[in-house]
Structure formats: C-alpha cells, structure tokens
Design a protein around this nucleic acid. Sequence first.
DNA 1: ATAACTCTTGATGAATTCTTGATGCCGGAG
DNA 2: CTCCGGCATCAAGAATTCATCAAGAGTTAT
Lengths: 231, 231
Amino acid sequence: MSDAGPLVLLIEDEPQMRRFLRAALESHGYRFVEATTAREGLAQATSRTPDVILLDLGLPDGDGLDLARRIREWTTTPIVVISARGKEQDKVAALDTGADDYLTKPFGTEELLARLRVALRHAARAAAGDDPVFVAGDLRVDLPARRVFVGNDEVHLTPTEYKLLTALVHDAGKVLTHRQLLRAVWGPNAVEHTHYLRVYMTQLRHKLERDPTRPRHLQTEPGVGYRLKLE
Amino acid sequence: MSDAGPLVLLIEDEPQMRRFLRAALESHGYRFVEATTAREGLAQATSRTPDVILLDLGLPDGDGLDLARRIREWTTTPIVVISARGKEQDKVAALDTGADDYLTKPFGTEELLARLRVALRHAARAAAGDDPVFVAGDLRVDLPARRVFVGNDEVHLTPTEYKLLTALVHDAGKVLTHRQLLRAVWGPNAVEHTHYLRVYMTQLRHKLERDPTRPRHLQTEPGVGYRLKLE
DNA sequence: ATAACTCTTGATGAATTCTTGATGCCGGAG
DNA sequence: CTCCGGCATCAAGAATTCATCAAGAGTTAT
C-alpha cells in the first residue's frame, strides 16, 4: 500500500451511484479504477491488483456473484458488495461466495468508508506472502491468468487437472490428504474415490514433470496424500 | 483442524437474545462460551481463546466499545458486534475501534451465521501463516504441514511412525504407557501387542536420533512406557 | 452431427508399508 | 554363574497402497 492512498476497484454500472462513490472515495484520499461490466471488472482486478474491490451485484452482463467467484479463484483481495437487494438470502449467498462484506442500498458514506477501512485492515494483515503467481523451480502457476508454465513452455491443463493443481498450490509445501484433495476437486461426495487422484496425478506429472517417474514437484506421501514441494 | 466446531464467545446480557443466539449456534455445530458482563467477557476472551467473539454493545457494566478496544490490545480474534443502536455513527465507532462486522438488531439467523463464517474465514487465513510447531533440540514437528525435521533435514515418516510420534508430541514430556500408545496408534484392540511399539520405536529412533543407541528425544521408561523429552 | 476433448472405470505390475518371528543384549534374581 | 524378563534389532513375507495403460462413456465445440 503506497502512500498515494489505497487503490479501490469500483465495479458499478449505474452512473448516479458511481458518481456518489467516486466523490466519497476521492475526498478521502483513495485512488480508484472503474469498471462498468463484469468482464471489465475481472480484467481490471487482474491487471491493476487493487487493494479492495467494491462490487455492485446488479451488473448488465452476467451475475455479480459469478464475478466474485472468479476473482476468488486466485486472490483474497477483499470484496465489499453493495446491492439494492436486501434479502437475507442474497446476503448469505454473496458472503458465502467469498464477499467480505455486504452493504444494502441506500447506505451512508461514513458507514461505507468505515467498512472499507475494515476490509483494508484485513488485507494489510493478510498481504504478507500472498503472491498470485506460484513458482517452484521450473514450474510456474499464474492463478489470475489461469495459465501454467514449465520452463518457458506453457502447458495446457484440463479443468480437473487445473483444479487439482490449484488445490496443491494453495497449500504448497503442506501434505494434503486424499480426502482433502478429493473434496476440493470432486466435491464432498467423491471423498472415497481415491483412484481418481492416482489417475490425475499421473497425468499432471506427465505434463509438469521432466521425469514423471521421479517427480520433483508433485510428491506422494504414501498412505497419506500428496504435496507440492516448494523451492 | 479440530472437528469439534469453532468456539464462539458470546458476550450478551439480555436473556432473550442469549437464548436466540445459543439456539442458532448450537444447531450449527458451534461450541460456545457465554459472558454477561464486559468484565467477564474479557476474562473469557483471555482464558478460553475463542475463534470468534460475538459482542453486544449494550452491556450493564461499562461500554462495549471499551471491551472491544481492550481485546484488540492483544489479539486479532474477529469481533462481530451486535447492537440495538443502528445509527451510522455507532457503526463507524465500533468498526474503527477494531470490530470486524456490525449487525443491527433485529437480524436474521442466516445472515448472522454467514457473517460468522466470513469472520472465521478471515481468522483461519490469518492463522495459516504461522504453523504451531513443536520443537525439542534439533527435532522439529510441523503438525499442520505434517512434516518432521531433524536439524535442517526433513525426514520422511510412514503413517504409523508419524502417528506414534504425534501421540508422543501431544503429551510431550509426560510418560505414556505402552497401553496408551498402542491405543492411540493401533486402536483399542491392539493394546497387548507391545512388540509393535518396540519395532516402531526402533525405526523412529533411527530416523530421528543422531545416535539411535543413546536416544536424546525418545526415551524409554523401563517397565512403563516411553516419553518424548522436552528441552 | 461430427469430431475433439475430457472424464470415468477396470486391470495389472510395482513400490511401500505393516506384521511377525527370530535373535542378541543387558541387568537383576536365584 | 546362569537363567529370566523386558528391551532392541534385523529381516522376510504379507498386505496395502500406488502408478500406469487403455478403452469406453460422456461433454463440448464447431
């Protein structure tokens, strides 16, 4: 966080609300970027890496929740949702999707700013060691771009392969049990299908390891699970 | 990762609201402690180290905000404020004092629970960085990552070896009887198979001790059991 | 509708781990 | 001094868990 003020990404399509928010932020030393669609919002989130994201759920293209989910795939940047819908169900859905706070319109400037401060407080505390690009040896996983490289070559992963890899990246260095991985990739109902894991680990190794027989990154912990080796 | 459910400290004096919250939490697998005064709340916060604190601002003795401030002096445990006062000014004051969320009465059970989940998510992420690691001399056991080091070298343990070691770590310094260890590792049916213990203690010593003949960590208590020496 | 890609599932040999018995050591008791 | 019980160690077969190949089912894109 530079001394130029925290950077807020504002994803909002209504011009009136945008003007209101712009005024509130500007007068309090925040820098901000704007986006008026979900697509644009996602692009800005990846390219500008804001300190906090202010997201209106009622966007013209696609669901705001979907956007939140997409963003949460690779970053923990706080998302503060603002919405006209005040139903409890809406709040629960947004918060469980990964939003960190939920404000119902209309709301006061001061409350908005206070909740933004809370979000930034959290972000500051969590910021240490939160690199959206994982690197270990010749392996590089770019979460925001959803791309994977070995050396200089990009490798294509299927959706399942990628999910498995991100699960490992998320707790890189730690041992993840079979159950943990299965739950993360195939959902809570597949917790017993250990065989899936074996098949996909072999495929991942064939794509990511120089010598799949002697894995340097994707290590198996016999009787326990797997882990992604750091360094 | 205890499966007993997160521990909530509930600081609330109104009996009716307390009953409501108790029901909401209980039916969702939370454990909780209660306090009805600020003084008691502070005491519980320090002694029980809850995962999240649910704080009503309208306490009989002293200001709830004061309590929040006192708690924030030494811990970042999430504080979710619930209050009858819905003025913007109140919210701002609470949030800036260190509260992580602010709910105005009346509120729905589902929203409360969702916001609790958010708070716990934050706490979990904040805690993820620093693993509680057991250390004794050159022996280091990182339980969350399931990794064991001797000096700077990581050693690989089989599931059974690791279970045995964690049983000893769990009561480090104390003597564990043969029966206790056998029950912990092999289950209640193997309580007689003392031989298992000998075999695995030998293996553990070979992996963890500089000189397996003269163990510095894994000490045998003749006729009783074994213990992991602290230091 | 077709083709290309992805996921699921079964079969098989390889690798690791667990169990079990045999053997030797040491100190105390007879 | 010798025997005995508790302990440590070694090693081999049994049991479990893994890696890998391949084929058919299911999906998605064109």
